[in-house]
Design a protein around this nucleic acid. Structure first.
Lengths: 186, 186, 186, 186
DNA sequence: AATGAATGAGATTTCATTCAT
DNA sequence: AATGAATGAAATCTCATTCAT
């Protein structure tokens, strides 16, 4: 076995932190390398360029969040429990690893991503959840409109905590957000 | 007596459009000037640098949106009519001048803004509306949590239209968003 | 009679002050005009460009200092009184109008001036004074070498006051500088 | 392991020469890089900006001159020999490396330097020499006033050679300047 | 007569990337 | 394998000067 790459993880952590703190465009290779404690050229050993780093990082974390969400939903049977589990899982992730959560949100605004249609996203998972609720007679209306409302309540509450309009930790709001989501569906 | 300013308005329009289309960081002074049909240096007569332009532009349009919202709310008496008026006013603005609306949304994510505590924002207006609803017995719960939910539904619906997940025009969704808002408050 | 130009004197004062404080190169037309309380274009009504302003200002003040020095020397008869008068006149000018004095010194370092050979300078006046002293038997040695020493003592004392190494006002040092000058000549 | 720096020394030499020939403000990064045979960006790997380059260069050469002066003084025992050694050392440096000497003189006029109080300067060395002379009974009067006179004679003679008022080389004037210095102290 | 808007040229600085060791 | 020096291109910004009113 070849010796494991040493700079890869520090580079990813540094990039994640700086991208979230300053934005993708505003963060330079120099800064990432300095924070990671390695050289600038080391980055090019692991990714072909900066765009590639951003892209790979985004996909990894998007998959992570999507899977987390899917597992939380699959683990429960009732619609209410599914929603509550999904909210709790994501809000706990936010409280424990705020960078991951914020990075996924941020990149969508800064970079236009072509994900490829085969890549499932959190939005897809929410849509499916709403459709399942409709089939179960627990929701009425256009699935996408409902999904937009659910995602909106979920994200904006997180945003308010992020910007200090609401006191944290975010997981505190699992119950009210779940309750609101159920009201919206009915 | 002096030559009247000719480049100011074109520069603002060009900046607004390009910032929205490509992002603030990704838009250069050169492009703004080219779109405005003037020299790059002209920009520096009206704003002290690029950041200043972004800041001033943001504040102007934030005031514009805040006032629009406030007027729509003041014009009506019932809570339901106030919410419907507010949603319709903003969504119509979006349909007619999408750049203004999107710019205000965009910049919050790209730039960390110190607005100064005296500057009223749309969030403040929404909070006051929720508190009024509570006094009228038409809402229950923490005002900020409720406001976050309302703003979330409102914005995420707009975002879905923006990214093509929902078909436009946005003002189509005035009624369902209003209905959802009322459900959330109760 | 035409109305007198209103911006000329303020512009000269502003330029003098800023040139001394920040250096000629580092001072822009914008700043000069702002300090003078007039427009940038006004400067071009009085001087053909920035270099012309620097040049004219330098010549005026050089003539002023040269004449001051010459008059002080001519007014006295003994060598000692001539030197003392010259030192006192210049040091008093420095105390009363430090900008004029410092500007004349500064410009020589920042700008290479072609004065034209017909323009008398303070150095010429000093050389003549030394030659007169030699004819009177009150000095020995090469006139230029002696002049360099005299000017050196004179200027460096002023420089030390300027930079705070010696306490002011500068005219306090008239007597010791004069005494030193006489020692040097003998 | 990394590529060894190739541009650092050429950049310093080019900057020294151009700063002296044309002045600091009048010398551009482009010219420095062209003279050094490297790109403009190379400069920013070694100094954080132009001001930093000027500052570092000044400090280095100031230390060099201060040390030279101090060694020359320490090497001798009598006051006269100390002064003569100091003058000769500096004037020889000027003749052999005029750029270093002139740069140190030039920058003081162009840039306001905050050296920090721990940095010894040639002025400090001269003051100490004068105080030693006073303790040895070979000088009378205020030490700083005397130092100003010594430094003035020393520098102005160099300046006259520099501007062609006196024929060079400068070390020719070691004896007369030393003699004048001794007269001043007594 | 006087303004301040506008400009072209050029300054400094930053950036992602490549290169030599 | 890994570094940090070097680079070309482009970014932001400054400047003295001219222009239109």
């Amino acid at each position: 076995m070849a010796r494991p790459p040493k700079a890869r993880v520090p580079l990813k952590l540094a990039a994640l932190q700086l991208f979230v703190e300053r934005g993708v465009h505003a963060t330079g290779i120099r800064e990432i390398a300095k924070h990671a404690g390695c050289s600038e050229a080391a980055l090019y050993r692991h990714w072909s360029n900066k765009d590639d780093l951003v892209d790979k990082l985004f996909r990894e974390h998007l998959v992570e969040v999507t899977d987390l969400l899917q597992r939380a939903i699959t683990a429960e049977t009732s619609i209410k429990a599914k929603i509550e589990g999904a909210v709790r899982a994501c809000y706990t992730l936010y409280d424990e690893q705020p960078l991951v959560f914020r990075f996924v949100l941020l990149v969508q605004h800064e970079v236009s991503k072509n994900l490829g249609s085969d890549q499932r996203t959190p939005h897809d998972v929410v849509i499916e959840l709403v459709e399942e609720a409709k089939r179960a007679g627990e929701a009425k209306g256009d699935a996408v409109v409902l999904a937009a409302a659910l995602v909106g309540v979920f994200l904006q509450t997180a945003t308010y905590v992020l910007y200090g309009r609401l006191p944290g930790p975010l997981s505190t709001y699992t119950a009210p957000v779940t309750a609101t989501a159920l009201k919206i569906l009915k």
